[in-house]
Each structure stands twice: as C-alpha cells, then as structure tokens.
Design a protein around this nucleic acid. Structure first.
Lengths: 150, 150
DNA sequence: CTTAAATTTTAATAATTATTAAAAATATTA
DNA sequence: TAATATTTTTAATAATTATTAAAATTTAAG
C-alpha cells in the first residue's frame, strides 16, 4: 500500500463525510482495506496540511484549507470561464485571448488550478501566455482548461 | 476582562507571532495581563474557528482559515483593482462599472472582502450592484473599496 | 438591590494528537 | 543480488487539546 494512495483516500474521505478524529479516519480506511495506525494518520495530516475546524453542524471536522475556506476554486473557475475568448497553442506554449483587461484574472485562475505540467503563466492585458514543460503535455493541459469552461 | 477583548488579543497574537500550542497562547496572554487557563483558550479557538496547521518553517502554528489559505485575498484584490472603471452610489446602493465581462469577477472579489455592511451583490456583464444595509454605511463601504484600489 | 437565570471560567481529567525509538519496508549503489 | 542507506510504519507514550462538573461571574427580571 503506497503512502500516496492512502493520502489520496484520506482526501476523498474527508471531502465526502464529516470525520471528527484521526481514529475515525483510521476506521474508515480500514473499511477500504487500508490498515494503518493513528500515528501514521497524524503524519499524513501534517503533510497534507489538513486542519480540524468547527463545521457548520457544530462538530469538529477535518478539512483541507481550501475546503475550510470553501467556494474559492469554484469562484475562480467561474472567473476563468467568464473571461476566455479563445485558446491557441504553438510549441510548448498556450496562448489565451481574454476579454479586455481580464488576462491577469485568468492567469490567477490558471495558477490556482494547480496543473503540474505548467511551468508558468504571463499575463498582459487581454492575453495570457502559458508555458508548458513539454510539447507532449500541451494537450493534457488544454483538456484541463476545457474542464473549467463549462 | 471581557471575552471579546481576549479573543481580539488572540487574533492579534497569532497574526504577529508563530504560536504552536494553546499553553503558549496562555503565556503570551498572561504577559499582556490576561490570565486564563488552556481550557478557555480551547473554547476561544473553537469559536474563532482557528486552525492549527503546518507553517512554512516546518512548525505547527495557529492561524485563521484565511491566513492558512494566504495569497487569495491579495489575488482577488488585484482582480478587483484591474477591472473597476468607476464607482457611483444612490440611496443604499453602490454601482460599480467594470471593464466588459468583469462584473462577476468584481462581485466575487467584493464578497471575499467580507464587508459586514454589505447585504449582497448582484453582477451583470459590466455592472455590479452592491446593496448596503443602511444609507449611513455607504461611505464606510466606499472607503473599504478604495483601500483595495491601490 | 436581590434573586434567579444564563453565561463563562476553572480545575480536573478524558480524549485526542504528535513524537520517539525501534522495526519494517523501500530504494540505492556497488 | 547483497549490502547499505533512506523512508515509512508501528507501538508506546508524551504532549496537547476538549470536555465535564462545579464554581464564579455576569446579566436580566422583579
């Protein structure tokens, strides 16, 4: 059982149900065939930078910091969706045309998507340049963008 | 010593220095002449919805959820700054004209400012309507906006 | 003001979480 | 592959945090 797999499951679990303690998380993982101690989970939580915070229902629960902050990803995706005019690519670059003045916004939205294959973004007034690590990865990135446009 | 005062001090303390434990917070408060037990602080943290999370320096620290999320506020303020064309007001409404298509973005940015006096925002294509609770509060809100434009 | 109700705090402790040291598992190098 | 180094995990426990029940304080009502 890979650590990475377990941590992915943890993220999945806390997004689906309200987990109050690390023991509870251990139980839930056990039901998925992943058997670890609370100590390991404590370290996972540290690494994943998860937090325990009062939920609306008045109970403690574990969450990612973005979940605890809630809505930001959706909001930024909407920003992206609302400002893109066209998307083109050449070599390892993707060029996004936006409505006037929205390039900065789009670049921020893209950064926030956390797409690994992207080296960096540069925004002018109505153009965003996206540098992709390798040419082969351009399609993958384009797909990620499409996900966020509708 | 009012509970409210203490909780304000707590927020102040955690924003200034890296507080790792509730005991540490109790100490710091003591040095400010506020003498409470860890139990009370535990409840304060619950009420304030503070979180303990790994900081960049590799230590645990207490933070507000927006501090732990960091950077988003700045980013959204920039979005706001980049898209506002003019600001007007009438009665308890504030009307913001934006560059084409940026109204939604602005409204999001405004929501994120967390200005108490605002009842709600409504965004079209290049106009944002902001409803303020009372007419007297309009100036206060305008000031808050100005803070975010430069 | 006095009494009663509600809220807040403390002291004590239960519950939870983080860490230590040793063991196990993985990865690296020759 | 064997030997060594690195990483990860567990078991045990130290450290931290949340809660309980009682006491103190504050607020509200007569």
């Amino acid at each position: 059982m890979k650590k990475y797999t377990r941590q992915t499951k943890i993220l999945e679990l806390i997004s689906k149900s309200e987990i109050e303690t690390q023991e509870e998380l251990a139980e839930a993982l056990k039901n998925m065939g992943i058997d670890v101690t609370q100590a390991t989970i404590s370290r996972d939580i540290k690494e994943l930078r998860l937090v325990k915070v009062m939920s609306k229902s008045g109970k403690y629960k574990y969450a990612t910091i973005s979940q605890s902050q809630e809505g930001i990803t959706d909001r930024l995706n909407k920003i992206f969706e609302n400002s893109v005019v066209s998307i083109d690519n050449a070599m390892n670059m993707i060029i996004i045309k936006t409505i006037p003045g929205a390039a900065q916004i789009c670049a921020s939205a893209i950064d926030f998507m956390g797409i690994e294959e992207i080296v960096g973004t540069l925004a002018g007034d109505d153009n965003v340049f996206v540098a992709v690590r390798k040419i082969e990865q351009v399609d993958k990135v384009l797909q990620e963008f499409k996900k966020n446009i509708r």
